[in-house]
């Protein structure tokens, strides 16, 4: 029940058009990979969906209804690209994750009736610990500030925060580019499993075609603010129609080179 539909999205910064009239449907319960060169407008599109970029025109429909001017927790959550900027340096990582927990689940914020504060606190801590463990961070580190973590560790916390909000639609903006392959595998497995279990639609922005290929049902390719190609993953990667897509595919570095050399 949570498809994401973008209709005629245009984003302009001054006179520069970053995203030009993009239509895209992420059907409910599926993953759409969004690829493209740097500056092609992938991230801007993702930001526009959650209302962080000035949308000139266009509509964002979540499960068929306008998500544009909704207040409160957005049904669309975004995981940011840069782990160094996406966590509040003055907050412990545990507090950052706790902020995302839905109130009804582990009411860290609003006092649930009859639940004593201590119990609520520990229920909340347990939820935070669960999400941290989920992304491979030692829950004992929940009391640390982000600057005690390496880049990859921070990105995992940011992911834990987005997942803790139980989103209807998740936008993942280059989230694996700062992750280790081992963690990347775990995160991708996790994302895929949660996505299938909870059935949220996902827009997965990445420049790693192998990862996009692994995760996505559909691939969309952007170039210079335009959506130049969109179709089922297999078709797009095996029989690319647009030169941009072909160029992207030819640039993927592979471990196979090492194989050939041996």
């Amino acid at each position: 029940m949570s498809s994401l539909e973008l209709r005629g999205i245009t984003v302009r910064y001054g006179r520069f058009t970053a995203v030009d009239n993009v239509d895209l449907l992420v059907p409910e319960g599926t993953v759409t990979g969004l690829v493209g060169g740097s500056g092609s407008g992938k991230s801007t599109l993702g930001k526009a969906v959650v209302g962080l970029a000035p949308m000139q025109s266009g509509r964002v429909l979540v499960a068929g209804s306008d998500a544009g001017r909704r207040r409160g927790r957005s049904p669309v959550q975004l995981v940011f690209q840069n782990p160094y900027a996406s966590l509040d340096p003055r907050m412990t990582i545990g507090a950052s994750v706790a902020e995302a927990l839905p109130r009804e689940a582990a009411s860290c914020e609003t006092p649930a009736r009859k639940a004593p504060a201590r119990e609520r606190r520990s229920a909340c801590d347990a939820e935070v610990a669960r999400y941290l463990e989920l992304v491979g961070i030692d829950p004992a580190r929940a009391v640390l500030a982000p600057d005690a973590l390496s880049g990859g560790q921070r990105q995992r916390v940011a992911l834990a925060r987005a997942l803790a909000a139980r989103p209807a639609v998740l936008i993942a903006d280059e989230i694996t580019s700062a992750l280790d392959v081992s963690v990347q595998g775990a995160v991708l497995n996790l994302l895929r499993r949660l996505q299938r279990e909870l059935g949220f639609a996902m827009l997965f922005i990445s420049h790693n075609l192998a990862v996009v290929r692994y995760l996505s049902d559909q691939v969309a390719v952007m170039d210079d603010g335009h959506l130049v190609e969109c179709g089922p993953t297999e078709r797009v990667l095996e029989r690319p129609e647009h030169p941009t897509t072909r160029n992207l595919i030819s640039c993927v570095p592979t471990l196979a080179l090492a194989e050939e050399a041996s």
């Binding site: 392959v181 595998g185 775990a186 991708l188 192998a210 290929r213 592979t254 471990l255 196979a256």
Partner: peptide, 19 residues
């Protein structure tokens, strides 16, 4: 580590190897 890298040939039907 090597087994955990998805490549253009990884079968999307399987889970990625993790540590």
């Amino acid at each position: 580590l090597v087994g955990a890298v998805p490549t253009m040939a990884t079968d999307p039907g399987t889970e990625l190897a993790t540590i």
